[in-house]
């Protein structure tokens, strides 16, 4: 046996822990990632029609924006607890809660992006014979992409953090490792899982930043010209 075992000493940093529990850590990280990705994708799919609805005028915008903002003030703990009778102890409960939270940011950003499309661009497209659907997909959405992707970045980073609360129903990705480790005072497990969680958020943010640059090269060109 090693002269000094960091697991026995309950150190904060313990490579022995990372090595011996690598399977557990990987499983938790994988769960964390797919819950986050699924939530943001569904959130985006729900936010798009809601933003289109809100764009129809203030009569629609007020209830849509009001409702999605209201959702954000529901404490995450209460949100997950309230969804329990509907979904039981399942991952769909956590995903649903996270989708509802992501809507606040996504709807706002999609709407801001669509409203930022210059009216003369729209007029020009109509003049070229674009129908409403083609106008949306080929002109408005591409121009709204920078604002939309900025929203996706914010939503993804906060979703990664919020997923940990899902551990209350046992589906919180890395949060599942944190919750039991608090009651047993297992320092290495709490620190490792927390650090992995922050790293996950950072990596997701950087990947999305890369995607943003790849998809909207004109924003950088414009910025360079302006400088």
């Amino acid at each position: 046996m090693a002269a000094r075992n960091c697991l026995v000493a309950n150190d904060w940093v313990c490579w022995e822990y990372v090595r011996s529990r690598s399977q557990e850590l990987t499983d938790a990280t994988v769960q964390h990632v797919w819950i986050t990705v699924l939530s943001v994708l569904i959130g985006l799919a729900v936010a798009l029609p809601l933003a289109l609805l809100a764009r129809r005028g203030p009569r629609w915008a007020a209830p849509v924006l009001g409702l999605t903002t209201l959702l954000y003030t529901v404490p995450s703990l209460a949100m997950f607890s309230l969804l329990l009778p509907l979904f039981g102890l399942s991952a769909s409960l956590v995903v649903t809660g996270l989708v509802l939270y992501s809507l606040t940011i996504l709807v706002r950003n999609v709407l801001a992006g669509l409203e930022g499309v210059p009216e003369d661009v729209r007029e020009a497209a109509r003049g070229l014979g674009y129908g409403p659907a083609r106008l949306l997909w080929q002109v408005e959405l591409p121009l709204a992409l920078p604002a939309l992707l900025a929203g996706v970045r914010i939503a993804t980073v906060s979703t990664v953090a919020l997923t940990t609360v899902g551990s209350i129903v046992g589906k919180g990705g890395l949060g599942n490792l944190i919750a039991p480790a608090v009651s047993s005072s297992f320092k290495a497990q709490v620190l490792t899982a927390s650090v992995l969680c922050v790293l996950l958020a950072l990596v997701a943010d950087l990947l999305l930043l890369g995607l943003q640059r790849l998809l909207t090269p004109w924003t950088r060109a414009a910025a360079a010209k302006g400088a």
Partner: peptide, 19 residues
């Protein structure tokens, strides 16, 4: 502000509770 969003409250509380 961006960094604050990335850090889970739950994780921070958990870290404090084992310290």
């Amino acid at each position: 502000s961006n960094a604050g969003r990335a850090v889970p409250v739950f994780a921070v509380l958990a870290l404090f509770m084992v310290s």
